[in-house]
Design a protein around this nucleic acid. Sequence first.
RNA 1: GGACGGAUAGCCAAGCGGUUAGGCAGUGGACUGCAACUCCAUUUAGACGAGUUCGACUCUCGUUCCGUCCUCCA
Length: 456
Amino acid sequence: MSELYLFDTYERQVRQFQPLEAGKVGLYCCGPTVYNYAHIGNLRTYIFEDLLYRALKMNGYEVNFVMNITDVGHLTSDADSGEDKMEVGSKRTGMTAWQMADFYTQAFQKDLKRLNINFPDTWCRATDHIKEQIEFIEDLEKKGFTYQTSDGIYFDSRKLSSYGQLARLDIEGLMAGARVDNERQHVTDFALWKFSPADEQRQMEWPSPWGTGFPGWHIECSAMSAKYLGDYFDIHCGGEDHIPIHHTNEIAQTEASRGTRLANFWMHGYFLQLDNAKMSKSAVFLTLDRLIEKGIDPGVYRYFCLTAHYRTQMSFTWSSLEANGVALKRLYQAAYDWGAPGTLLDEYMARFNACINDDLNLPRALAVTWDLIRSNEEPSAKKATILAFDQIFGLDIANYQPQVVEIPADIQKLAEARAVARKEKNWPLSDELRDTALAAGYIIEDTREGWQIKKQ
RNA sequence: GGACGGAUAGCCAAGCGGUUAGGCAGUGGACUGCAACUCCAUUUAGACGAGUUCGACUCUCGUUCCGUCCUCCA
């Protein structure tokens, strides 16, 4: 087995992965803010994280996988102004913020299941960890990294010389165009705790040493990852949009409080683009449900994501999705036709592992797979090998069954009549019968053994 | 306006300083009464302009465009 190499955003290079503790990996992935359905762009990131999880397992690591659910405190603007997304979503849906969080958490988990994405070992909700977050802020306060304004407790980013290293932020550049809005002292300062408005009862608020309110968005990840994985763990993942703000601030908090940069590796999934724009800003908000309504199997979307490297922005088009649906169907059918699995093909396994361990190069791994499909190896060996590949792909190749269609009696009769016509070499009648069946939605095909009927 | 990334054939999308990525579509062929399915083969690249090099899709610089984040204006 080749060594595992992964791209680390912090170092901006591919590095050999070495666990902090032999044989074990602590993995933290930023989960959803549950105020709406996940769109397929969000889901691409979770597929990437699942591939990483599977690759770590393939390399023999015991993985402790933690994912948070942000159910409070994520403002509509990342500049720590604007309304809480949860409160906004609550007004939109008519549910309470608590009901809505539960509703969208379940919708999210259903999407993960349908995409064959492994669940984390630990789910952690921000609202279940208010105490930990308050303690974290208290520690930052004690160490002199906070200041208070009329609307909350803020992190003083100037106290940290390394601030912004992850994103290679140019602080001077940011300052040049900085908006002096509230009492925030510096562009890169951010809220740790926000006070409830004096004239308003929020649905989600808690007492704290500084007054009633709710935690800032970034503190939950520092506090909860520390609780479940420790102050310095192996890998932290999220979407590329988290690099400049969210992850930068998580690192700042943890460096200030614990003196570590939180994670050894920082990995980011890149956006799915729709019409050359980030999906969430597009007029079209595509969910997995929408794909299913259009007759597209969730597995097709998963396969579609495998065709691009996780670190490149990928263009979504219906035609490319459908093209990959055709490819996946051929892959499934080929594997199905190979029958029972036999012995692994070492050469293909080695090539496959090399692709996966080269920073999760799934497109290359698929190329190896198509080599395997077109090769002249023993079917049983090919089957065993592709099933091993599927430990990473997660396409559930083992359970694929060709679609069994109920053939109506009249269609059966058409096919039988056509067989007779063909025997008599009555081609016009034969073609007419086939066309009639086609008009009813059934395709009659000739095989060596006779005819077979497929649904259109 | 700033920082950070990107630009590959009809579409999606990889690796690589010289030697086939892959998939889908298309084209040619085998099979078929004709098709379909399947199989075999195969055309079309590297945003633009310079530079480095024996050789650049790959490295450097500039330009244009796209994305993310920040900001400004409206």
